[in-house]
Each structure stands twice: as C-alpha cells, then as structure tokens.
Nucleic acid binder design. Structure first.
Lengths: 322, 322
DNA sequence: CTGAAAGCGCTTACAG
DNA sequence: CTGAAAGCGCTTACAG
C-alpha cells in the first residue's frame, strides 16, 4: 500500500499523489478528491521512514528518563505527551537509569540513530563523556529538573524554594526545623536546597540539622526515626521530597505522633502522593506537567525558556501553627 | 556522515561498509578493521530511517497507555523498557486517553505510519471501530490488563482474584464485607471482580454490598464515607484498587477510625501507594513489571503467553483478625 | 572478498 | 495542473 498503488488507481503519477497528501498545492480539485478517496478506500498509511529519509528529520523527539516509577516522572510525561499529540510530534522513550554512563550512552546512540529532532531529559545527570558525546551529536536538548551544562533547563530555583519552605515553617512558629532525606553532595538540587534552608535559619540564629538521604520514602522514614530518638526532637521536618515526607508521616503514625500537632511535616514536589497520605501533605509545589509542556515546546518550537519556573507552597494539613 | 563517506575514506564501496557494519560477513579482516576504525573516528550513526525503509521493519514497538499518572502504569513501563533495552528494541510511547476513540485512532495511525513491529497496549479498551482498524492494519498486539478481542492478553484472573481476596477476609473472621470503587458495568475487570466477590459471599449467605466507583482515591474516599454513615457499617472494605484503598484509609484516619481494628481494608494491585500509606495496605498483588516483560517478550519473540498470571495476597497491616 | 546496480517509499526541483 | 527524474541512505542479490 504505497502512493504508487494510489497513483495507479487514480490514473495519475506518484508525484501528484504525494502533493495531494501533503497538501502542497498544485493539483485540480478533481484529482484531489479522487486521490483522497482512493487513499481512504485503500487505508493508505504513509511510510514515515521513507518520508523522514527525504525530509532528513523525523518529528520524533526522544524523552530520556531515569525510570518511570519515580513519582514525579508521570505527570511530566503526561504533560509532554499531550503537547506532542496536539502538535503531531512522536515520542521515543528511553530509560537511562541512575548514573549509568553506559546505558546513557546507549540511549544517546539510539536517539542519534533514530534522527530524533531533539531530546528532552528528565532529571538526568550527564557525565563528562556523555556530555561531550551529546555536544558532538549536535542534537538540541532541554533538561528538566537538573542543569546540563550548555543546554537550557526547566527548573524551579531550588535554593529559593528551600528558603521559602523553611521560612514558611518559621513564620508558623516552628523553631527546631530539620531538613531530611536530602543529598548534600548532589552538586545541583541537593546543595541548592541545603543552602536555602541554611540561609533561612541563619538570620534566626537557629542551628541547622540536615539528615542526608536519597529523597526516598525509606530515607524519610529513617530520618524521622533517627530524629525522633534524639534527646531533643525537632518540631518540624522539611522533607526533600513528598516520598520522603510520606515516610516521615508513616513513622509518625506508627508511633502515634499527631501530625502536625506533635510533628509538622513539609514536603517537596506536590506529587501524586501528597494527596494520598493522611494528613494531606503541605508541600513546595513544582508544576511538573507545566514544566514538561514548557520543555517540549521550547525544544520543538525553539521558543525561549523562562529563566525559572514558579513554585509555591501548596497547603494541606501536615503543617499547623505553633 | 553516511556509509558513503566512510567508503570514500576507506577506499571501498558503500556495499562493503554496509556489510562490515552489519557483520554480515564477506570481507577481509583488514577491510573490516579499517572500516570500523574510520566509522568510529567519524562518529558514524546509522540512519535508521533508511535502514528501516529497506528492511521494511523498524525494531520499534508502540506502547499505548491511557495516561502515565495511573499508579500502575509506571512499573509496567519500567518492565517493558528494561526488556526492550536488553534486546535492542525501541519504544514509541503514545497516550490514548480514557475511552477517547478519536485519540485512540490517531495513536493507531501514528503507529502504523511508523511501521512499528507491534503494539503493546496497557489497560486500553478498544471500541468496535478501532478494533476493526487494528485488525485491518495487521499489526500484532498484546494487551495488558484488559481483554482485546482476537489478541493475546496478559492479565490475572480477576474473578478468581476477587474471590480469593473476599475469601481471605472471610477467613479472618470478617462478615460484613463491602466491595468499593468498582465499575460493575465495565464488561471486563469490573464485572469479573464483582462476580468473584459475590461467589465468595454466596456460600456464606452474607449479603453482598457493592459501592460503584472509578477505582480512584476519590471513589474510595466517597465509598468509605457513604458506608460509614450507614446504620450498620461494614467490618471490612475490599477496594477495587490501591488508590481507592488509600482513599478509604484516608477517610478512616480522618474519622479517627483505627485500621484494621475498626475497619479492615483490602487493596488491589500492590502498586506504589500500598507501601506509602499508614497502615501499609494488605492487597491483592498484580505482578506488573513481570506482566510488562511477558507482554513485550511475547510480542517481539512471538513466544506463547501464559494463560494467566499469578496473583497473590500481599500482606501488610490494613487487614487484621476478627 | 569486493563492486555495480537496483530498489525500499517518498519528496521535490525542473519541464512542460 | 501534471509528469519524469533524481535522490534521501541504506541493503542485498548478482557478478566477478
């Protein structure tokens, strides 16, 4: 089922069929109708490979994620997908794992081979070698969440967001505030948030207390456990993610601690889980779906990206007043 | 950067370069080495579009999902992606929404145009028109979760699973058991689970009580609220999904009802959220990642599919004894 | 072991 | 308004 078949049936040449199907003009209304009708009858499907071959492009963008089970990946993917659907763009999905240079390289090769018109990477850290490879491939890339040197990024200002979150807790009367489940050695997100947290506390003379972790539920749970067994437990814990916040709330529930009366918990992300746990998480919201749309739009349309995306405190019930 | 360029530099013809790169044999060790070296130097990337055009296939499979934010989609996608990565298969992702025939058609057209070698659909219901289109396209498809007429399916036996879950509650001494947040008009999953639930109760003479809903957190919450305000509240609620179970637990917490002491909650899925809420959900586990791998393997390798996938009760703490 | 040629299905100047 | 021809980059019989 090719344009040749249609051409034969319609009594014209493939050139004409192509022109009609691409609406590039230069045909009579009569031929147009006949061609379209036959194409429909024959259930013609353009061979994109052939089309792409001559167009030297693909209308496909590569989406690179670490893995899909991360709670914030899903809304981003949804945001991207919706935009792509509306604009006739296809999405090639690839997982590159966490800090797996070999797999990341494989993903880049794959995307280069598929001649994607651009890459959208979600929270993917590039090592030097793969960064060089990326540059060398000459593919445009927009990064979501983390900074990739030399490429545009869509992200909130983590330092300010952590500052705002900490400030929020201070304003509500909390004094002993810990920051938990964060990776202070992570040169990007982790450090920035630690700084913001420390900056907010500095002015008050309160001592910062950071419990490192990997942003996970488990990390939150462990941090809460550790903090609660200390001589002087905190009044509030600022979690590095909603998953971690859920872990903290879980620990509190298991100990019969009332949230927020005995322990306030502030999350980060406003992901899926924030609504699911009891009490609902008050959290620093990142507009994931919107970030996904911004990123793909910038990538495809070459529109400029806003410097920073707006975050905000989404209030639920895990933080009260003290 | 094409095989022509490599050929020129290596002093051979494109045919030879192609043979070397595809390891199809028929070249001296010397040419092989030279070609490979030059290809590496030039950072050659095969144009997959051209290759696919002659091969008349693509090594791409289409993955069709309703939307990514559904809590069980992520582990399935992860399972598929890992398998695909190991086997050099690419994944074209498309969202077809929920019961959106127009969008589903667009997705099928897209996949046909991309000449995917097969389609993996995750919990996608096909209407008659799109089913006809699919047949007409001649693409192999494996469906996950729901039955698509005429195509292989990977799914648990919902009727039996619901029976087993209900039986589990009965064995633990619960008598007034409601089934909540389920769609009894859904010809597949919903009906099957209702039947299983009813069959288990039948033998005991207990009255079934089904609160319809759409499997969501909200549906669970509303069902719990409604049930709890009745004259004689249930002792246990069997939720149609873990999301719904989370909604039920949330309602219980908000009312100060102890789970499972005052209200037992049995979930369905063993998704991400089952571990997150307090208490952890006892739930009917579906092996999503494994289902994803089975499905893609069957699709690509044409291996036969097991008739049914094993489910099991995953015990946590939302069901006790009575 | 290697090359010349044809062809995959489409698009697009160029002629008329 | 339409056709004939060339070409996108690769693969693969066919010859030698």
């Amino acid at each position: 089922m090719t344009i040749k078949d249609i051409a034969k049936q319609a009594g014209v040449t493939p050139s004409t069929v192509s022109r009609v199907l691409n609406q590039s003009g230069g045909y009579s209304d009569k031929t147009r109708q006949k061609v379209l009708q036959i194409a429909a009858e024959l259930h013609y499907q353009k061979n994109e490979a052939a089309s792409n071959l001559v167009a030297q492009t693909s209308n496909v963008i590569g989406v690179l994620i670490t893995n899909a089970t991360t709670s914030f990946a899903a809304p981003i993917i949804d945001g991207i997908e919706d935009w792509a659907y509306q604009h006739g763009i296809r999405i090639l999905l690839a997982h590159c794992g966490l800090n797996d240079a070999a797999r990341l390289k494989a993903c880049l090769d794959l995307m280069a081979g598929q001649k994607v018109s651009g890459i959208l990477s979600i929270s993917v850290q590039f090592d030097a070698t793969n960064l060089a490879l990326l540059k060398q491939l000459g593919l445009p890339l927009v990064s979501l969440g983390v900074k990739v040197d030399g490429y545009p990024t869509v992200a909130i200002d983590d330092e300010k967001a952590a500052y705002t979150g900490t400030k929020y807790l201070l304003n509500r009367g909390y004094r002993r505030i810990a920051l938990a489940a964060i990776d202070p050695t992570d040169p990007q997100t982790g450090q920035a948030r630690c700084h913001g947290y420390q900056r907010a506390l500095q002015k008050t003379g309160l001592a910062p207390l950071i419990i490192p972790g990997d942003y996970s539920f488990q990390a939150g749970y462990q941090a809460a456990k550790q903090l609660w067994q200390a001589a002087l437990p905190p009044e509030a814990i600022f979690a590095a993610s909603d998953d971690a916040a859920a872990g903290i709330v879980f620990y509190a529930q298991s100990q019969g601690l009332a949230v927020p009366e005995q322990l306030a918990v502030l999350g980060f992300d406003n992901s899926y889980v924030a609504d699911l746990v009891y009490p609902g998480l008050t959290t620093v919201e990142q507009p994931f779906a919107q970030m996904g749309q911004l990123a793909i739009e910038a990538l495809v349309m070459k529109t400029p990206l806003p410097d920073q995306v707006a975050y905000q405190i989404k209030e639920r019930h895990s933080v009260g007043w003290r």
